[in-house]
Simulated scan of single mutants.
Amino acid sequence: MSGFNLLHLITKSQPVALRPCSLPSGARRTKKTWPVSFSQEELKERLTPMQYHVTQERGTESAFTGTFTHHKEEGTYACVVCGASLFSSSTKFDSGSGWPSFFDLMQEESVALSNDFSYGMHRVETTCSQCGAHLGHLFDDGPKPSGKRYCINSASLAFRPKDAARQPAAEGGSVGSSAEGDKSEF
């Protein structure tokens, strides 16, 4: 029986009162409220289709297909959209999930968290706190000491090797490589 037919049966037999629930709405800030913003035209030109889909449309890449899933080089993982430093390679671990996973942030304020109720479940969405780019999700099944697992799409990340990690990408430094090719430039 379809959801409509079931709802019709319920509402025919008894009135249904709609009331607000106590759960957070899952609404998040619009792109206009982030400290750094880019036009959609610029992002479509600068990012690959997968990078755009993940960061701007809250998409996800298929498990085990991302550039940084098995990446082991030392350095810094940054936001592919704005270049903000997000994760250190020293906090990266193999979670077996098929996406790059980190147990801690470079700085507490580098990632914004919001509730995500898509697909009929509750998850905690992670976004870049500077530009609002969708990164992935946060789970509480990571290793000690934090117990956190930041499950991040490779397409939302760029990588700066250890030697280049001192120079911020947003201030003219180049990011060593980005997921899905080297299309994005800051």
Rank of each mutant, 00 (worst) to 15 (best):
Y52H: 15
F103S: 06
V54P: 09
P35A: 06
E45T: 15
A112R: 03
Y119H: 15
V81A: 03
D182I: 00
Q40H: 07
G59Q: 12
K12C: 11
A155F: 12
S89H: 02
K32R: 14
S88D: 03
M50L: 15
E108S: 03
S89W: 01
S95D: 05
C82H: 04
Q167F: 10
N5T: 09
G3P: 00
C79V: 08
H134E: 07
D182L: 05
T126M: 03
C128E: 04
F68V: 01
Q51K: 09
A78T: 12
T33I: 00
P145I: 11
K31N: 05
S178P: 00
R123M: 04
F139A: 06
I152F: 05
A158I: 07
N5G: 04
C82L: 08
S97G: 02
S174C: 02
S118W: 02
T65I: 09
G142I: 07
S25K: 12
L7F: 12
L86D: 03
Y119G: 00
S110D: 14
L138I: 07
R46Q: 11
L23K: 14
K44V: 10
P100T: 09
F117H: 13
V175L: 11
R160S: 10
E180Y: 13
S90K: 11
E57A: 12
R166V: 01
D104A: 15
P143D: 06
T55A: 04
R19G: 13
Y77P: 07
F38A: 04
Q51A: 13
F87V: 05
S90H: 04
A112Y: 01
W34C: 09
Q14G: 10
P35N: 06
S146P: 02
K92C: 02
D104R: 09
K44F: 11
T67G: 02
S88Q: 00
E108D: 02
G132H: 02
N153C: 12
E74N: 03
C21E: 06
L138Q: 09
E125S: 11
F117Y: 14
P20D: 14
G96P: 10
R58W: 06
S89F: 02
P168V: 12
P24D: 08
T126V: 00
Q14K: 15
L138A: 09
P145Y: 11
K12D: 14
E108P: 00
D182G: 10
Q51V: 07
S146Q: 12
E41Y: 06
T11R: 14
L6Y: 14
S177H: 04
S156M: 08
D182Q: 08
K92H: 02
S129I: 04
T69I: 13
L7N: 10
S146Y: 04
S118H: 03
R166G: 08
L138F: 04
S177W: 01
Y77F: 15
K31Y: 07
T48A: 15
S184L: 08
E57Y: 10
H122I: 07
L157I: 07
S118E: 02
F93Q: 08
T127G: 05
G83H: 06
A63K: 03
Q130Y: 01
L7K: 12
H8R: 15
L6A: 15
D104M: 08
S88R: 01
R58E: 13
D182H: 04
C131Q: 03
E108H: 01
V111A: 01
H134L: 11
S88P: 00
L43E: 10
P168C: 12
C128R: 07
E108C: 00
M121E: 12
